[in-house]
Write a protein that binds this DNA or RNA. Structure first.
Length: 479
RNA sequence: UCCUUAGUAGCUCAGUUGGUUAGAGCGGCGGACUGUUAAUCCGUAGGUCGUAGGUUCAAGUCCUACCUGAGGAGCCA
């Protein structure tokens, strides 16, 4: 008999039919005559209740049907005699496929802290919380490709290994096949990378943007979706050394088009989650509500699903950096000296506390900040006519902060070269990039969305290590 | 990297001004129970108190260093 998935059984299973399901035991409750097994096969947050008579299988048989064990069950789907579920599986055959020693299996039917589960990240997808998160993660991957495909974008696989180190997006991981001990040295006494695998120094990519631009200059609308690596020593709940990023790049497009795209994109993804992952969202919401109860009333946040709907249904605030500075300068916390970094005027970089104030206090919705001073942004961002600001945009979300960073790119070769000189970007290594401006250059724009930060928002989780299967952070590279 | 804070049983924690044999709940195991929903009830095992030094008659408790986690900051996505 063919296996059926529990999600299908619970949704459309016909009472009276004979089925086989295979999955893992979440809990088993026994009494003298009958055992109840909560079975989960990963297809849904919900368990299927299996009812097994002690008389049929013998008392000893159940000793190995423990939490975590893999089992196969064949039986008849019947209306449930209990109140917790509408249908249940009356077992006629019960097979232990893989035992889980209850003395050693770390995940037991009790509350575990997220910190503990991070230490057993290889087993945590078997918990309700993490199975929900990773089903949602999958749904978001799918939605991202859908969104772009429907709008005529082409997916480009930009390189993971790169020799370009001019992106300035962060410290890079060097990759090499040279021996760690006694590496060959050149005349200056430095490691001689001409003898390395690629004949030059190579790194893991910190962004696919520059290569993405090359393809936007040919396919017009492209997006990348791949892993990104930053060797920054960042120890926060919002940073990973290895994370996934989505970077669309659009030819014949300006900053306004870019903002429209970013806002449409985020709303589409959130609506997709609401439309396709409601069971998992309801579960995550309820666990958040429990967690919130332990906090003081004024620190509680909006209920998850309500929050997602709110963002999907309301326009983002669009604000220039200069206007944001004015608002912050005249804000209560600034006047009362509540900011750790007081706002004095134009030119200061915005700190987390300022972004938080704008998003969570002033507007209470996502904010797109634009036109930052050129000094605090990257060389490739298009210089505005005032010569002072650049066509940059950051999308700020509540709790998470910057979820998207993007810009209209500098398409004027002379301006771009001047900016590279000012910011000490070596032009020699970047001729391939400058060629896009030399040959058929055009206005274009794009942005980068941190995939895990999106997942933080959608799942309501608060630590980024909990929305990626295996987190890589400083001092942590298990599995 | 900086600041704050924590590390005691498989997990979550308590452990008083330093003082005999370090406790609880959950989980596990054994038993009871006519259908349970994180079942319930009775019983039971389980600890080199993060590591290394130090102070002291005496250290889970005080001091120093290191390791690891968490929260915040910086950097950013």
């Amino acid at each position: 008999m063919k296996n059926v998935r529990i999600v299908d059984v619970l949704k459309s299973g016909q009472v009276g039919t004979e089925i086989t399901v295979k999955g893992w035991v979440r809990t088993r409750r026994g009494s003298k005559n009958v055992n109840f097994i909560a079975l989960n096969d990963g297809s849904t947050i919900n368990n299927l209740q299996v009812v097994a008579e002690v008389e049929v299988f013998g008392e000893d048989f159940f000793k190995n049907i423990n939490t975590g064990a893999a089992v196969g069950v064949t039986g008849k789907l019947v209306e449930s005699g209990g109140s917790g579920q509408s249908v249940e599986l009356q077992a006629s055959a019960l097979e232990l496929i893989g035992a889980a020693d209850p003395d050693k299996y770390p995940i037991q039917p009790k509350r575990h802290s997220l910190e503990f589960l991070r230490e057993v990240a290889h087993l945590r997808p078997r918990t309700a919380t993490f199975s929900a998160i990773f089903r949602i993660r999958h749904a978001m991957v799918f939605a991202i490709h859908n969104f772009f495909n429907d709008r005529g974008f082409y997916n480009v696989h930009t390189p993971i290994i790169t020799s370009s180190d001019a992106e300035g997006a962060g410290e890079m991981f060097r990759i090499t096949t040279l021996p760690a001990k006694d590496a060959p040295l050149n005349e200056e006494g430095n490691v001689d990378f001409t003898q390395d695998f690629f004949g030059k120094s190579a790194n893991l990519t910190v962004s696919g943007q520059l290569e993405g631009e090359l393809f936007a200059m040919a396919l017009a609308k492209i997006y990348t979706f791949g892993p990104t690596f930053r060797a920054e020593n960042s120890n926060t709940s919002r940073h990973l050394a290895e994370f996934w990023m989505i970077e669309p790049e659009v030819a014949f497009s300006d900053l306004n088009d870019n903002m429209d795209l970013a806002e449409d994109f985020l709303k589409y993804l959130i609506r997709y989650a609401l439309d396709h992952c409601m069971d998992d969202l309801l579960f995550l919401s309820s666990r958040l509500v429990e967690e919130e109860k332990t906090k003081p009333a004024d620190q509680r946040s909006m209920e998850l699903i309500e929050k997602l709907k709110f963002v999907a249904d309301n326009d983002f605030v669009r604000l220039t950096y200069t206007d944001a500075i004015e608002i912050l300068k005249n804000s209560k916390p600034n006047k009362k000296g509540k900011f750790q970094y007081p706002i004095t005027g134009y030119g200061t970089d915005l700190q987390s506390e300022h972004e938080r104030f704008l998003v969570e206090q002033e507007f209470k919705k996502p904010v797109i900040l634009t036109n930052y001073p050129k000094e605090i942004k990257s060389f490739y961002m298009r210089l505005d006519d005032n010569g002072e600001t650049v066509a940059a945009m950051d999308v700020l979300f509540p709790q998470i902060g910057e979820i998207i960073g993007g810009s209209q790119r500098e398409e004027r070769l002379d301006v771009l070269e001047r900016r590279m000189d000012e910011m000490n970007i070596p032009k020699d290594d970047m001729q391939w990039y400058l060629d896009t401006r030399r040959f058929g250059g055009c206005p274009h724009a794009g942005f980068g969305l941190g995939f895990e930060r999106l997942l933080l928002f959608v799942t309501g989780m608060s630590n980024i290590r909990d929305v990626i299967p295996f987190a890589r952070t400083p001092k942590n590279c298990e599995f």
